[in-house]
Design a protein around this nucleic acid. Structure first.
Lengths: 191, 191
DNA sequence: TGTACATCAGTGAACGCGCGTTCACTGATGTAC
DNA sequence: TGTACATCAGTGAACGCGCGTTCACTGATGTAC
């Protein structure tokens, strides 16, 4: 063989990581395979020796990218963080301004709802992981059911607020939305 | 002239209403002008005697469609409704299953964040109307600032929850998300 | 009242372009002898 | 050790298709005389 043993796997990983950023930045329908391959340093023709279709790339991106629902820019080593810290990091100006490094759900939830079932299932797995993370940061006194309800509500709130903050052109209003989301999410976490 | 005085205006209105549904159902990038015109009972060539571009259609749809952030299927005559009623209607199975008749923000927020400034401004106007509606349903004892913060948080929560409920293929989990959103939004409204 | 003309909303063929996908080919390397 | 061959990740031209957009045309009607 021409290349090291791990070469093809590394290329595949590079494509996945590039796709992961581009999908979040431009949307799934908003970015083409030729552009993704180009930004991964390759030509478009080689795509199909790694993936069978664009749809499969989307699914693999959701299921193989390392925990992308937990934004790269806020990821920490090891143990889970305080819920307050998670909420403030999620609803930060930095996260708002860097969707390509941020939460998949905030960038893609609308589009995911229109994707084929397989893609929606891959997304659901990711969502459940993120919800479980949030549950771990909640008071251990709560029942499992209460924790899950609160985690779902906190995630809905912060994802919704982040999306809205990204739609508003005026930065003052945008930051007002972030702040309202932080207060509400903290309220849910504490109640 | 061939047609009644109001004919052209009526056709334009028909195109706007069709576009309004199709954008919410398929996404802005997900639907073509030829399909929109076809579903409005016209051929695609006539489009440009009504609008200068697809982008202008998007902007006009956001600014001219009658209050689409307040879903058609839940719209009532006259005065504002109770916040609880709004929240339960918004996070209903019917709204989840009919995005084409439902809230613009839940259907399009992700995509709007990637649109040109003019489109984002038109969307912001719509969002502000919806927020003002929610404020009117909150306790009059609250300060204007507190009302606005709560309204923003409630809207973030219900919009986020609705979007997530639409991504999940399993209806039980989907309804669990709706219910968690309802409880959290009611909690914010009452606090 | 009847005929000729002007109007203009809507038609449908055509444009260049980028999309997802296919495929014959390249060329650097490992293996066989 | 040196030569011939097999491998296969990656290349780039080409495919049919649908997109947004343009434009010469149609044909039903209102107006002028």
């Amino acid at each position: 063989m021409r290349y090291d043993k791990g070469h093809k796997a590394a290329t595949r990983q590079k494509i996945l990581e590039t796709a992961s950023c581009e999908f979040r930045k431009e949307g799934i329908e908003g970015i083409g395979l030729a552009d993704i391959m180009g930004r991964a340093g390759l030509t478009h023709g080689g795509f199909y020796s790694h993936f069978s279709s664009k749809d499969e790339l989307v699914r693999q991106t959701l299921s193989e990218t390392y925990d992308p629902m937990k934004p790269t820019i806020f990821r920490q080593e090891g143990q889970s963080r305080d819920v307050e810290e998670v909420i403030r990091g999620y609803l930060s100006v930095r996260h708002r301004d860097h969707p390509e490094k941020g939460c998949y759900a905030a960038a893609l939830a609308g589009e995911i709802g229109r994707q084929p079932r397989g893609t929606r299932e891959a997304f659901t797995d990711l969502l459940n992981k993120r919800i479980a993370d949030l549950e771990n940061g909640l008071s251990p006194k709560l029942s499992a059911k209460a924790k899950r309800g609160k985690a779902l509500a906190i995630f809905s709130t912060i994802m919704g607020a982040l999306q809205l903050s990204r739609t508003v052109p005026d930065s003052e209003t945008s930051e007002e939305i972030l702040e309202a989301g932080i207060q509400a999410a903290l309220g849910i976490a504490r109640s």
